[in-house]
Every structure is written in C-alpha cells, then in structure tokens.
C-alpha cells in the first residue's frame, strides 16, 4: 500500500487547496483505491500488483490534482469584490490625501487588521489574503521610519555612551523588529505551506508600498504636513492600487494556475515600475534593475520557500481513519 500512499502524497502536494478540502479529496481517493484494490484482489491479483495497477489506472498525480484545483480554485464574484476592497481602501487614502492623517490611517488599518484576524480564524478564504498582506503594512512603515533612529542609537551604544532613554527606545524598536520579522515569517510560512502562489498574492502590493515608504522615509515627510512633494505622489499611487485591486479580483476568477502567475507577475512589475519611476524621478539602470528585481523577488521567494518547506502535511497510513470530517 506504500505505492498508493506515495501516489496520494504526490496528489496532495499539487492540490494547493485549503487543508479541509484537500483532506476530503484525499480521503475519497483513498476509499476509491481501497475499492479498486479489493476488486482486483478478487480477480486473483497479488497485493503489490493490485496497487501498481490501481495507481496506473489513475494517471499522473499532477493531472489529477490540476483537475481538482480547477474545481475549487475559482472564487465567486463576491469573493473577487471582497479581495478588491483593501486595495481600493489604500487607493482612496491616496486619492483623498488622507494617508497623511494618523487618525484615518489608524482607523483604516485597524479595520483591515480586524478583517484579517477574523477571516484567519474562520478558515482563511482566498479573498482574505490581500487583507492579511495589508495588515502588515503599519509594521513595515514603522520599521522603515525607525531605521535611521535605530542606526544612530545602536552606533551611540557601541561607541560607549551612557545608558539613556534613547537606549530604552532602541530596545523597544528592536523588539518591534523581531515581532515584525516573526509575524511576517509565521504568516508567510503558514500560507506557503498551503500554496506559494497565495503567499505571493498576499504580499504582491509590498514592492509598491516598499518603494513609496522608502522614499517618504528618505525625504522625511511628516504626517499632517502639507508638503507639496507628497501631493505629487497621490495620483500614481492611486492608479497603482486600483491596478493591483483589479488584478487581485481577476486572480480569484481565473481557473488556470499559469494564467494566475502571469497576471500577478505582470501587474506587480507594471505597478512597481510605474510608481518607482514617478516617485524616484530617475531612470538609471540601477534603479530600473531594482524596480524589476524587487517584484520578481517578492513573487518568487514564496515559491523557493515552498521548495524548502514542502507542502502541507504528508499522509501517514494511520491518519485519515475514515471518520467523517466537518465541512
């Protein structure tokens, strides 16, 4: 039966669906194999030959998994609309220039975090991933904004200055960095274990946000300020987030995996280059390479991570004893 277990593990590794659905599919296939093997045994075939024949009859595990993926991967139009919302929210913050208001930002990202956490607790539907991605934005912004301060404080500490309030703040920021890295790693790893493409889908606005945050951190735009430079960013940022939102909605409606990868890649690349060229106002080769490299890295890093971590939990013979599963 090891041959069948190994076949089912290969099917599961290509399913890329939520664990509950995967469990249901694998359990049904397992029951199918048990029936088929029993029938072949009745015809007088040996146990090993029965397993070989059953696996041969079922075709390539990748093809079987792809057929199931096509059944379950497509979200409804409601799902697509829900996935569009956080992108539109960020676009609206730029359109109205309200991104400079800490109160509005707090309310907006508080709402995003609430949706992300409650959705995570309710089985992580596919539309939730953009919300999870955006809920990490305040942490990223804080890390960027504090980098200069952390660098200066760490340098002072190393040069042997006396302990002061600044060092307590440094400790707080280092804790925040650890929290950020931990949260980011935890969420990405959990999502990658299900499907690297969903992890890419979750973090694909990050290059655009990264370019913008690094630029405001570099120039030193303060919140509540009426800096004319900050108004110049509003239009390209609004356009970029509307583009990302349309892509996020379409992504859920597309059934073919390759088409999803291409859509995500092209949109992320296009939006990052658009924002990067307007914001950085430079087209040197280095900048262009960075603008192309950043989205590619963001999209492909989860795929590499999946290669290292593997997909889901392997099926063990003792597992899946046949008890009905809650849907």
């Amino acid at each position: 039966m090891e041959l069948i277990e190994s076949y089912l593990n290969r099917v599961r590794s290509h399913l890329h669906l939520d664990p509950r659905t995967e469990g249901r599919i694998i359990r049904e296939l397992k029951s199918h194999f048990a029936e088929q093997v029993a029938e072949l045994r009745e015809r007088g075939m040996g146990a090993q030959d029965c397993a070989k024949e059953a696996v041969r009859c079922s075709g390539r595990p990748q093809s079987l998994a792809r057929l199931f993926y096509a059944v379950y991967c497509q979200g409804s139009w409601t799902d697509a609309l829900l996935a569009l919302q956080p992108h539109l929210l960020v676009a609206a913050l730029f359109l109205t220039h309200l991104w400079t208001s800490p109160l509005v930002l707090l309310a907006s990202f508080g709402g995003v975090l609430y949706v992300a956490l409650s959705g995570w607790a309710r089985g992580r539907p596919n539309w939730l991933y953009p919300w999870i991605g955006y809920s990490l934005t305040p942490l990223i912004a804080t890390v960027f904004y504090s980098m200069d301060f952390v660098y200066r404080s760490a340098r002072d500490l190393l040069l042997g200055s006396r302990l002061s309030l600044q060092h307590v703040q440094l400790l707080l920021f280092v804790t925040l960095y650890a929290l950020f890295i931990g949260l980011m790693a935890l969420s990405v790893v959990r999502v990658v274990k299900r499907d690297w493409l969903l992890a890419s889908y979750m973090i694909f606005p990050l290059p655009v946000l990264g370019v913008w945050i690094s630029e405001i951190a570099r120039i030193g735009v303060r919140f509540n300020s009426a800096d004319p430079a900050s108004y110049a960013w509003d239009r390209p940022m609004t356009a970029a987030f509307v583009l990302l939102g349309i892509c996020a909605a379409l992504f859920l409606r597309i059934r073919r995996r390759l088409a999803r990868i291409l859509l995500l890649g092209a949109t992320c690349l296009g939006a990052t280059i658009l924002v990067g060229r307007v914001l950085l106002q430079t087209s040197t080769m280095l900048t262009l390479r960075l603008l192309v490299g950043l989205p590619l890295f963001t999209l492909l890093a989860p795929a590499l991570l999946e290669q290292i971590l593997g997909h889901g939990e392997p099926i063990r013979p003792a597992q899946d004893s046949g008890r009905p599963q809650a849907r």
């Binding site: 599919i25 079987l64 379950y72």
Partner: peptide, 28 residues
Amino acid sequence: AGTVYPVLHKLEQEGLIRGEWAAQAGRQ
C-alpha cells in the same frame, strides 16, 4: 478517478448532488 471525482465535486459544488460519508462494516 480523474474523470469521475472532479466532476462529482463540481456537481456537488453546484448543488446538483449531495455527498455523505457512510460507514461499512469492517471496511473503509
């Protein structure tokens, strides 16, 4: 299996059929 099960799941998703696990004596 690849011809039948994905279609059954699709039909179930569309609400045209209903699937239920049933116990059998001594078997899966």
